[in-house]
């Protein structure tokens, strides 16, 4: 496989799941909030836990987004250093 293709697959693997992870975080947060409201407290606290869960979900989405960015940045730095060391 040519190095360009390899590079592209690496980039796709690293960044291709950004959007999906973001959405999954929001849905997990929202779902947790709705379950707390409707099942645990039987609707007496609606809609508060739904909103709180949604807010936490969005925050978790951004957190996982930054995690991906920082991890890729760290790995890039590591690889650059290795390449420099090799010559």
């Amino acid at each position: 496989m040519s190095s360009f293709k390899k590079e592209m697959i690496h980039l796709l693997a690293n960044y291709g799941h950004v959007g999906f992870t973001f959405v999954a975080c929001i849905f997990i947060g929202l779902g947790g909030g709705i379950i707390l409201d409707q099942k645990v407290f039987d609707g007496s606290t609606a809609p508060w836990f739904t909103f709180i869960g949604l807010a936490f979900g969005i925050a978790a989405g951004f957190k996982s987004l930054f995690d991906i960015l920082w991890r890729v940045k760290k790995n890039d730095g590591k690889n650059d250093g290795k390449d420099d060391g090799r010559g």
Binding site: T21, C25, F27, A59, G61, K63, S64
Partner: peptide, 8 residues
């Protein structure tokens, strides 16, 4: 936040 992103 950490729990949600882990389950995600």
């Amino acid at each position: 936040i950490e729990l949600i992103s882990n389950f995600a």
